[in-house]
Amino acid sequence: MSEPLRNLSDLDRVIHEPARLLLVALLSSVESADFLFLLKESGLTKGNLSVHLSRLEEAGYLRVEKTFRGKIPHTEFRLTPKGRSAFDQYRKDIGSIVNPKKARG
């Protein structure tokens, strides 16, 4: 198997799925966000978004925090350190596939 193909098969499947990649990319740039923000920005349906968030949580990439904003219950989602490093690694991996010369240089 050639190196780029091997790299392709090594990609993190949890993050590689487009909807989850979008969610992880959004969460990587902030401390945390609520369901409504992720819903509006991703354009996913509520059911779909819940499924993808659960998948990320199962993988240990996401932490769900139930807090209060004033008196209103509030659920926030944040990437765990494991999730952040998995996302950084994914970006390196995808970079080495798309642009192998640059990745080696």
């Binding site: 902030v30 923000f37 992720l38 920005e41 944040r78």
Partner: peptide
């Protein structure tokens, strides 16, 4: 804003 498009806690 937050009731319309959601809440984001900015990265410290």
């Amino acid at each position: 804003t937050y009731p319309r498009t959601g809440f984001v806690r900015e990265k410290g």
